[in-house]
Design a protein around this nucleic acid. Structure first.
Length: 292
DNA sequence: AGACTAACCTGAAAGC
DNA sequence: TGCTTTCAGGTTAGTC
């Protein structure tokens, strides 16, 4: 679910809940696919550490600790990071989208079977929770100076992308444009929703071979990517199935989607029904008249 | 090296 | 109503 805008919003809201605080206790679920670093090791190495900084790299969050360790977090498809306490305005709920009972708006979150990590702090303030129903999310604690293949593999952050870099990366690639946008080693942070939206804005068909992109089109596409990402951050991200902001509120970018998830609906610019087809195992939406 | 596939896991929605 | 199938916003390991 979470792509760059959702991860960036999560980062901004978590900064006051993490940075400068001293970790006192760690609770986890049982060892699983979710934990790259085992729960046992997290519980041994996190308490007593203070968080210095929280950064975003593509769709990853990286918390720098005072002893040089780094805590790497990825939300996968259904991950949710949030705090609760005074700052919490609304809780996560499986009935998200439906009207919540008034009493649930102030109730405290209690960890359920999908809550895999809970950080408590020595100083006053809310705990931080990492919940992930599908467990595609990831937690890894890097030792001081330890590299991470996952991070080293990432291409340029999508917010720093340029037409020149896209054009260079697209040469001699025998994959659809859409697949190029989703390749995190080329550009980090774009996911399925924003790839479709940006391609629509740029008037480029997702199936177009990457190598057939012209230099001016590369500029247009990067401009569209930046516009879509910045606008989504501005509106709190897309709350389509599981994503909510750490404070519990929904983003509203889903209301501004032009093609994603709109198969059969009229194209906002020409009225032609939006086409959906699968590219690289990902559901892809576009207007066959406006995008070529 | 580059491109494709299957796999990881759970829940909601659609289909019958 | 209830059972079955399909579909999800991501990434990686393995194969050709």
């Amino acid at each position: 679910m979470p792509e760059l805008p959702e991860v960036e919003i999560t980062r901004r809201q978590l900064v006051p809940l993490l940075v400068g605080r001293l970790i006192a206790a760690v609770r986890t679920s049982a060892p699983s696919y979710f934990f790259i670093t085992s729960p046992r090791v997290l519980k041994r190495r996190l308490p007593g550490r203070r968080v210095i900084e929280l950064r975003r790299l593509g769709k990853y969050l990286l918390a720098d600790l005072d002893d040089g360790q780094r805590l790497l977090l990825h939300l996968g498809m259904t991950g949710q990071l949030f705090g609760h306490g005074a700052a919490s305005v609304r809780l996560l709920s499986s009935t998200r989208g439906a009207a919540l009972a008034p009493e649930s708006q102030t109730a405290r979150f209690s960890p359920d079977r999908h809550t895999h990590l809970q950080l408590s702090f020595a100083d006053p303030g809310p705990d931080v929770y990492f919940r992930d129903a599908r467990k595609f999310g990831k937690v890894q604690l890097l030792r001081p100076g330890e590299g991470s293949p996952r991070l080293e593999r990432l291409g340029v952050d999508a917010l720093a992308w340029t037409g020149a870099r896209l054009f260079a990366a697209s040469r001699r690639r025998r994959i659809p444009l859409k697949a190029l946008l989703l390749d995190q080693s080329v550009v980090a942070g774009i996911g399925n929703i924003y790839a479709d939206e940006a391609l629509f804005l740029a008037g480029l068909r997702p199936t177009r071979g990457a190598a057939r992109l012209t230099r001016p089109e590369a500029d247009h596409l990067v401009t569209a990517v930046l516009a879509v990402l910045h606008r989504s951050i501005e509106t709190g991200g897309s709350s389509i199935s599981d994503y909510v902001q750490p404070d519990g509120s929904d983003g509203t970018y889903q209301d501004e989607r032009r093609v994603y998830g709109r198969e059969g609906e009229p194209c906002p610019s020409c009225g032609t029904p939006i086409t959906r087809r699968v590219i690289g195992q990902r559901s892809t939406h576009y207007c066959r008249r406006c995008q070529c």
